[in-house]
């Protein structure tokens, strides 16, 4: 029972990060039907930039929380700029190209960003500074750290803020209108290009925070970290129903739980044939099951001609 509860806590923490990243995938897909495979790399850049800033500031003797906050505050605009640039340079010229062209381009952008990061921060895993002192609390025999609590609280705050932005603000109405009928939105006076840029930039702001959170949680970061994280978050978005914001949140949290519980029990269930080193397969098993049995995802309406 303690193992179960412990894995639920771990899964929820991880799931929150997946959800925040999945929102970026789903927003972009919702508005231009592009699977932005470079989104995971935006998360990585967020983590890397925050790492560098924290590394510099921690020597100044500032309070640890302030240092982490400063790292995040720098990472967010850095990621926003990255995403803005990639939309402007790589995706916008392909707006009316066949669906496959921007998809391949996204993979290319992802490789470019990885290698730029490799040139700046090196090939080896970097220890993410653990400057915030960890406190551990016990609930029902399971342990939860202050970092985990912070991740969960921050994630849900961000998700709430995004929902507010999309459903209650002028920009949000414009985003939803553009995703429904891009041509008409233009004729009604919406600057389509600005709305699409805004969608990328907002998704990137979320990704930056996710990068800082995941870096702090695992205590390390590497130029390849965005790849697997991005793929899993993408699976989460598909699980929830891609293009659907609530779906991304639900899919992310479920994906985290599946992964944590699967990893926790796989040894017992297979008589230790498989161990916890198989943790990364669960996301993809879920992806396959979703695509076979409910391709529109849990909250998606219909797939239609979407690839």
């Amino acid at each position: 029972m303690e193992i179960f509860l412990q894995q639920v806590i771990n899964g929820l923490t991880l799931g929150c990060v997946y959800a925040v990243v999945a929102l970026g995938y789903t927003m972009v897909y919702g508005i231009i039907q592009l699977i932005n495979f470079a989104h995971g790399e935006v998360v990585m850049i967020g983590a890397m930039v925050a790492f560098s800033v924290i590394g510099v500031l921690m020597k100044t003797g500032m309070p640890p929380l302030l240092v982490v906050a400063a790292g995040t505050v720098v990472a967010v605009p850095a990621c926003m700029a990255t995403a803005w640039l990639m939309e402007r340079v790589a995706y916008r010229p392909l707006r009316n190209a066949p669906r496959l062209a921007p998809l391949i381009t996204a993979i290319g952008i992802s490789i470019i960003l990885q290698h730029v990061a490799m040139m700046i921060w090196g090939r080896s895993p970097i220890a993410f500074p653990q400057i915030v002192k960890t406190h551990t609390f016990e609930i029902g025999g399971a342990l939860i750290t202050n970092v985990q609590i912070a991740i969960i609280v921050i994630s849900f705050t961000l998700m709430g803020a995004l929902m507010f932005l999309v459903y209650r603000t002028k920009l949000g109405v414009a985003m939803r209108a553009t995703s429904q009928r891009q041509d008409v939105a233009g004729l009604m006076g919406i600057d389509i290009n600005r709305v699409i840029s805004a969608t990328f930039v907002i998704g990137a702001a979320l990704a930056a925070v996710a990068g800082v959170m995941i870096g702090s949680y695992y205590g390390q970061t590497q130029y390849t970290m965005g790849e697997l994280l991005g793929l899993k978050a993408f699976c989460a978005a598909v699980l929830g129903g891609i293009g659907n914001l609530a779906g991304a949140v639900l899919g992310g949290v479920l994906m985290g739980l599946v992964e944590a519980l699967g990893t926790g029990y796989i040894g017992d269930l297979t008589n230790n044939w498989f161990g916890s080193n198989y943790r990364d397969v669960f996301a993809f098993i879920v992806l396959i099951l979703v695509l076979v049995f409910r391709p529109s995802g849990l909250l998606g309406e219909r797939v239609g001609d979407r690839a």
């Binding site: 002028k170 939803r176 209108a177 008409v184 009604m188 006076g189 919406i190 805004a198 702001a205």
Partner: peptide, 28 residues
């Protein structure tokens, strides 16, 4: 060609875009 999944008032609010400003950062 309405925005079928927006409410009536949201559809009309869309039309106001062109006469108002406030961008991404304002919204955030």
């Amino acid at each position: 060609r309405l925005f079928a999944n927006l409410t009536a008032i949201e559809n009309v609010m869309i039309g106001r875009h062109v006469r108002t400003r406030a961008g991404v950062f304002g919204a955030m």
